[in-house]
Nucleic acid binder design. Structure first.
Length: 664
RNA sequence: GGCCCCGUCGUCCAGCGGCUAGGACGCGACCCUUUCAAGGUUGAGACACGGGUUCGAUUCCCGUCGGGGUCACCA
């Protein structure tokens, strides 16, 4: 038996999108499960649209997702742990893995096909065919290329080749078989395409490049691909591939047809067509969706504002006017226009590329987990009766099977992905979260990264100077962990983190006090009293003064700029109903989670609770005014964390400023 | 329009002739609570329709309807 080989064969015409990522995942998992090889091939036969940057980006995305390939282009990169890796370095010698470098091979096989009378040059121009197609469609009939009357299957058309050799521009078409074509599909079952449905499709374009259909068939055969898993949109192409395989035999020399054929027929790989991934509205999720969204936005805006012309838009987004006009007219779907429009007008584009999810702060493992569930399931149950649906990449590799691939198209549910991501983030140990978060911030939010760890961390010395002041207060590792604790339950993605800790990133003198919060909490009616106490009759500002004194007293007496250490011990005690620590019976102790410098946030919370109790106030009566003074609003992480993160100096400075601003 | 594929809660999956049709996300309620989150408990919610086959259909067959894909010198 031949060793199992699967392949993922993207065309480098943009980013890797989630549908492609799932296809790659399934191919990878299938190969891993069965001990086969997973291969990457770059299908760059579209000269106009392919680019090396795109190919590189797609490989990067695959690597980020954790999919490594055994065969294919070599990608040198730095792994998640900072180590250098070279994916694809152990490839079999069946390359090159870029189709544009395999032209000699395709030509040899085309020549071979021609010699067998199974391919012929055709001279119609694109415009000519287009006109014919339009005419047929106008009559509501199905357009198919009509085989020229002089073509006889199995007979070489010398007259046509004479024209071609004379330099006349031409394509090469395949002489399609007359009978029914059967496609055996491991997901869908048998699919039959009736005789006559296949027309003589093009196998070599006028520019000398093979078409997709031809190149795939040749490469899959020559590269030993045994199993092809691809999206269902390709199902309709498969008869073409099967027909080609039936007409082709292996050459003695793959790059030279004149050496003759071995007579060995091409093998048809096992096909499996995956259900499509769709938008919430049920349409196919495609890279063109970004263009669609941007176009709709522009049209709406132009409809509202007559002054907004293509020229005006072009000027604003700094792109060619004609390009913008074509874009709006729907002539082109250029992503760069869509992206530029989104950037300039604050429009958010649908997230469809793997890169989009990277930038939004999703974890690669979660993306893979979620994607695997689109069209596949484990069929396994947990002990508690729930489905097995949360797992890592390795689990997919160990459990994948084609039998469990579904047939129905799946709609992409952003909310569910988000929930999965939040779940994993929430369960991540603090240290790991911190590493992951900082790594993400360094790439996607460098200024926040600088605000957290300082500007000169990543080498290069202190020369970055321009920004000066605001980046001057990097946090200690301990404070960073408290930041993480504040962020974790509030972040569904890594990008959510900054929002939760915005208060800590802003300079003490720049805290913006929310008008509504000030009115309600600081100046409003009396601060809420504790349950059995009489109404306090004191405003939030009154309470804030008390709190300020309390905080002053909580500073470390050694002037070290820390909170006093007793708070840490206080924070290690169990908390009673009033929010205050309960003293432990002799001999009993509580153990804190290992390695956590915790205690302090809890101790600070207790400090607030203690103040509230002494003053006959509800905890909120103290907490809310303090929260506004510290963070500017009534929404923030737990107060203990806020105080711990800021430290006494910053906290007191903020309270003082607030008092100065609103008191009297 | 031709051809092809598909059809279980709003969404994603489980079910492979007999089940109180299960789980996840979302949604509702309640609890917890110093704000926002998080967490806990709990509830509502589906076999598209019509014919067969069968003692018995969500499950098998046919049709209808509905959804999607595809009809290029793009892949």
């Amino acid at each position: 038996m031949r060793p199992i080989v699967t392949r993922f064969a993207p065309s480098p015409t943009g980013h890797l999108h989630v549908g492609g990522a799932r296809t790659a995942l399934f191919c990878w998992a299938f190969a891993r499960r069965l001990g086969g090889r997973f291969m990457i091939r770059i299908e760059d036969t579209d000269q106009a649209r392919s680019s090396d940057e795109s190919a590189r980006g797609i490989l990067e995305d695959l690597a980020w997702l954790g999919l490594s390939w055994d065969d294919g282009p070599v990608l040198k990169r730095t792994g998640a742990g900072g180590e250098a890796e070279a994916i694809g370095a152990g490839s079999r010698a069946v390359g090159p893995y870029f189709q544009a470098q395999r032209l000699a091979i395709y030509n040899a096989y085309i020549e071979h096909l021609v010699g067998a009378g199974l391919a012929y040059p055709a001279f119609e121009s694109g415009a000519e065919l287009e006109a014919r197609r339009k005419a047929v469609v106008a009559l509501k009939q199905t357009y198919r290329y009509q085989r020229p009357a002089d073509i006889v299957p199995g007979v070489v058309s010398e007259a046509r080749w004479a024209r071609a050799r004379a330099g006349e521009s031409h394509v090469v078409r395949f002489v399609s078989p007359a009978g029914e074509v059967l496609v055996k599909d491991s997901v869908l079952g048998d699919v039959r395409i009736a005789a006559g449905e296949l027309d003589d499709f093009v196998v070599r374009k006028a520019d000398g490049f093979p078409t997709y259909h031809f190149a795939v068939v040749i490469d899959d055969e020559l590269m030993g691909v045994t199993h092809v898993l691809r999206a269902q949109e390709h199902l309709i192409n498969t008869p073409k591939h099967v027909a080609l395989q039936a007409g082709l035999t292996r050459l003695i020399d793959d790059a030279d047809a004149s050496k003759g054929s071995t007579g060995v027929r091409f093998t048809t790989p096992v096909y499996g067509h995956l259900p499509l991934i769709c938008n919430p509205d049920g349409s196919k999720m495609s890279k063109r969706d970004k263009a669609k969204a941007a176009r709709k936005f522009l049209k709406d805006q132009m409809g509202k504002d007559a002054g907004l012309t293509a020229a005006a838009v072009a000027a604003k987004i700094k792109l060619d006017e004609k390009m913008v006009a074509d874009f709006v007219a729907g002539e082109i779907d250029a992503v760069e226009v869509a992206t530029a429009v989104a950037g300039a007008y604050g429009l958010s584009l649908p997230e469809i590329d793997v890169w989009d999810y990277r930038a939004s702060g999703y974890l690669p493992g979660v993306v893979m987990n979620y994607l695997s569930l689109l069209g596949w399931s484990t069929g396994q149950k947990n002990a508690d009766g729930t489905d097995v649906d949360r797992f890592e990449l390795g689990f997919i590799a160990a459990n994948f099977s084609v039998e469990r691939i579904g047939k129905k198209e799946a709609r992409f549910d952003r909310a569910k992905l988000l929930a999965f991501n939040a779940d994993v983030l929430g369960k991540m140990p603090d240290e790991e979260f911190l590493r992951t978060w900082l790594r993400w911030l360094a790439v996607h939010e460098p200024s926040v990264h600088r605000g957290l760890v300082g500007a000169d961390r990543a080498g290069g010395g202190k020369d970055g100077g321009a920004g000066g002041g605001s980046a001057s207060t990097p946090f200690t590792h301990e404070q960073l962990l408290w930041l993480v604790q504040a962020v974790k339950p509030r972040a569904k993605t890594l990008a959510d983190g900054q929002r939760a800790i915005g208060f800590a990133l802003v300079d003490d003198g720049a805290v913006v006090f929310d008008v509504g919060a000030v009115a309600k909490v600081l100046r409003g009616a009396s601060a809420p009293a504790s349950k059995d106490a009489a109404p306090s009759g004191r405003t939030g500002l009154d309470v804030l003064r008390l709190a300020a004194a309390e905080l002053r007293g909580a500073q470390s007496p050694d002037q070290s700029g820390h909170w006093k250490s007793e708070l840490i011990e206080m924070g290690s005690l169990p908390v009673g109903p009033a929010g205050l620590p309960v003293s432990l019976p002799a001999g009993v102790s509580v153990s804190l989670p290992a390695g956590l410098p915790a205690g302090l946030p809890a101790g600070l919370d207790s400090l607030i609770a203690g103040l509230a109790q002494r003053e006959g106030l509800a905890i909120g009566g103290v907490a809310q005014p303090l929260r506004v003074a510290l963070c500017g609003s009534t929404v923030s992480p737990g107060l203990g964390h806020c105080l711990a993160i800021l430290g006494p100096a910053r906290a007191l400075a903020r309270v003082a400023r607030c008092l100065k601003e609103f008191d009297g």
